[in-house]
Design a protein around this nucleic acid. Structure first.
Lengths: 346, 346
DNA sequence: TCACTTGACGATCAAATGATCGGACAGCAC
DNA sequence: GTGCTGTCCGATCATTTGATCGTCAAGTGA
């Protein structure tokens, strides 16, 4: 297999030929490196572009195979080798990698933003989340899994394929009834349990109780206890991330009224997890609303795989807060939010 | 090791969700491929950019390791992976690769053109050739090696490091005396034998005899025979390539006179190897000069590693002819000539 | 409905790769 | 001149990678 070699490795020998012996020392030193780099470039070319094996390269370059190895290492180290993946997914991979590293996540999925459809990344998120979810559910050993509420979580379970696993248990982390007594239409537990045949555990409470006393009463209920006990045994939790602003789901779905929303905004709340409002550093805000939230305290979920599904420019600050708080182990988001998170982080 | 996955593999499932069952067939088909390509891109990214092992990628993507392998193969096949070597040598490698393949050479070295110095590629060539030469000489087993004449060959042996190999034999392929009886100042055998301590065999003849009778007389000499016998046993031959024009070395060094030069030009000669003039297809031209050339017929060197050293725009047509004639097994040239050869070839 | 084709998937093995180790060489100080 | 030190080089082994094969499931036609 014929390919070129032996060309630029010359400067010191050139100096010898031309009789430039006076400045040998310095020249030799600089050029030894240049020479090595040339060889490295040649080796890299043969390896990555030419696709030859290190043995072939070794014989063509007249060095040993470990020598080729060192050259390739040098070429990579010196940044001679540039690899580019020609696919839209490449940017997403980069973003997800950076987010994973910065916030110490077990995984982070970034779905690409579809320049065509306006709100399609919503469905993308759902499917990406469903794939993660499926990875848990498909295993045969009995599994306990908890779910948050929200449109995204609901969309995720709807995107899930049917899979018969009656041995699994699914439990909700937040109340499924609104203040007026109607059940939360975004609760995913029912759909999930239907699709898998697993057991369902619903939290018989509103997300935010009407008063502190009401909350205390609920926490005292046997049923409530039973459900939360199951929730604490869950291995993973798939939850949404709520924004705190005029479009906040807590407000839109009448879990809190306008005055309470204003209170949260005044206290610099930017987002919520399971109804627990956070400031931009991810600290749970202690206020009148917090004291009435019935869902499991986030602290109790530290040991679980807490996976958040959320995307879009509007939710981005809330996601960032959740990440900063260190609550999450996994994240499924979109390119828009990922960019915001990384830009704001630095 | 956290990194993203599971994002774009959606179209078919999306279709399912949105209830687009009517056009399932076609969609599924197209999208299955897109989906695979997305996975492939992800795998490629993790492998080439992220530097993960295939096992890690497999667990992150939720497929088996052979699956990852197939994805990587697909990514390469579909041209998703673009590798670039950031070094001037990269272009040379490409050129040498193409020349090697097109003309079926065992090797081809292309030295980069130095935009700084004007005629420096001359020295580059010499050093590149010397490295090839060294690869032969450094071996301990007795070696017979033949040399052509010319400035480039001479420069090559001068660029060679000293290396004690008294067991080797070096023999010239072309006469080392000019018509006037003076010895050829470009003969490299003396230098080479001096540097290695090997035996030397000089051809006691001019390149071109004064007449056919003179040539016949020489070929009859016992000494001449002895030397050519050694030459035929050589494993490799390092030769130059001569141009045929007003600056032809054959003419400049008075091996042929102006009238003979004109005769060659009239017969479409573009270059010569060992004094044998060739047309642009590399066929040796049969003419009055040919009948007086004393060096070994090229046909007798078919079995040897015939390595040519030559570069520059002016010599390029001659090199191309030599390549087209299929005389060469190896070539050491420069970027300029390499480009010319490849451009003219297509 | 059944047999056949087609394609994909995962287990297994050979090849290639990366890493560690011991040894040799050159430069330097004494 | 001799010993020391740092550096480079090549042999060996563990890991990773690529390829082949058998199996299985889905789709297709009789």
């Amino acid at each position: 297999m014929p390919v070129a070699k032996g060309a630029l490795c010359i400067a010191d020998r050139l100096a010898m030929i031309l009789g430039k012996d006076d400045r040998r020392e310095r020249c030799d030193y600089v050029d030894k490196f240049e020479q090595r780099l040339d060889q490295a470039a040649r080796a890299a070319w043969l390896s990555y572009v030419g696709g030859r094996t290190q043995d072939e390269i070794a014989s063509q370059l007249g060095v040993s195979r470990p020598g080729v190895q060192r050259l390739l290492a040098l070429a990579r180290q010196e940044g001679l080798v540039k690899v580019r993946i020609d696919h839209p997914i490449a940017t997403c991979m980069m973003l997800s990698q950076q987010i994973s590293e910065r916030f110490d996540l077990d995984f982070c999925d970034v779905v690409p933003m579809d320049t065509g459809a306006a709100d399609s990344s919503y469905q993308y998120l759902a499917v990406a989340g469903a794939e993660r979810l499926e990875r848990y559910i498909e295993r045969m050993a009995p599994l306990t899994l908890s779910l948050g509420s929200g449109r995204t979580v609901r969309a995720m379970v709807e995107a899930l394929s049917r899979l018969d696993r009656p041995q699994h248990r699914f439990v909700s982390l937040v109340g499924n009834v609104a203040r007026d007594g109607s059940s939360n239409r975004y609760d995913g537990i029912m759909v999930l349990a239907d699709k898998t045949g697993g057991e369902r555990f619903l939290l018989p409470a509103p997300v935010v109780a009407g008063s502190v006393e009401e909350k205390e009463a609920m926490l005292g209920q046997r049923l409530f206890h039973a459900v939360t006990d199951v929730a604490l045994k869950a291995e993973a939790a798939f939850i949404g991330v709520g924004r705190i602003d005029r479009q906040a789901p807590l407000f839109q779905d009448h879990f809190i009224n306008e005055g309470e929303l204003d209170e949260l905004l005044a206290m610099q709340a930017v987002g919520e997890l399971l109804g627990w409002p956070m400031n931009q550093d991810g600290d749970v805000i202690d206020c009148s609303i917090t004291r009435r939230v019935t869902s499991l305290p986030l602290e109790l979920l530290r040991d679980q795989q807490l996976v958040a599904l959320a995307g879009g420019r509007e939710k981005a600050p809330a996601i960032l807060a959740a990440l900063r708080g260190g609550w999450l182990k996994g994240l499924v988001t979109d390119e828009t939010a990922a960019r915001f998170i990384l830009d704001a982080g630095r």
